[in-house]
């Protein structure tokens, strides 16, 4: 078992929370992991990514070689395309379709739509809509996390302990919504994305 994934989005969107949950789930399964993250200046609203590798054998490099990622997991649709060169020919893209427009020259909807539709193996999710239906726009990243669970060999329960660590102190409601976000994401992941 070896899974390599690029997690990406914009600084502040909760990439590190997603990776923290996956790492903990891997650890609980007795697997190894390495996860390279971005700190410092780049975190200030810039493009951020994290290389995450989990395996049942030792892992050498913290960085994934080009063409070796099984998965790109993104909280933002534009960011997917920056890292596309890391993906295996049959790699999967799981992304939110909700743009984070923090720059003046953000591509128009047509460009984004055309690129997203051209992707061969994809799970597209309107994470904002799902998060709102759960009751918190803040859980968009966790919806995407849930959608990736199946591809990584996990079920929602694998993530519960880490979610409790991350969100338990923020109150029962917030923890419940995050757990719900994982489960809703998981269902959508199995179904191949948001309908329509």
């Amino acid at each position: 078992m070896e899974k390599n994934m690029i997690l990406c989005g914009v600084g502040g969107q909760g990439i590190l929370s997603i990776s923290y949950v996956i790492c903990n789930a891997a650890l609980a399964n007795g697997w190894n992991f390495k996860q390279a993250e971005v700190h410092g200046m780049a975190q200030r609203g810039g493009a951020v990514q994290s290389h995450l590798r989990i395996a049942d054998k030792p892992i050498a490099s913290d960085l994934i070689p080009e063409g070796r990622a099984d998965l790109i997991l993104s909280v933002e649709p534009l960011e997917v395309f920056r890292y596309i060169g890391f993906l295996k020919p049959d790699g999967i893209i799981i992304t939110s379709t909700v743009p984070y427009v923090s720059i003046d020259n953000y591509p128009d909807a047509e460009f984004m739509q055309a690129n997203l539709q051209r992707l061969p193996h994809k799970i597209l999710i309107d994470a904002k809509e799902i998060a709102q239906s759960i009751g918190s726009p803040k859980v968009q990243n966790i919806v995407i996390l849930g959608a990736a669970a199946h591809s990584l060999g996990f079920v929602p329960e694998n993530f519960d302990t880490a979610l409790e660590e991350l969100f338990g102190r923020k109150g029962e409601d917030i923890l419940r919504m995050n757990k719900q976000a994982v489960r809703k994401g998981y269902e959508l992941g199995l179904a191949g994305g948001t309908p329509g």
Partner: peptide, 28 residues
């Protein structure tokens, strides 16, 4: 390192997204 060792690069998904705008860091 792979290149310096003379190994062929891994094959990757063939996909050209076109020109992407950068997203530099900014003040909060």
């Amino acid at each position: 390192v792979r290149k310096a060792l003379g190994l062929a690069p891994f094959s990757k998904l063939n996909f050209d997204p076109g020109v992407l705008p950068g997203r530099p860091p900014m003040l909060c």
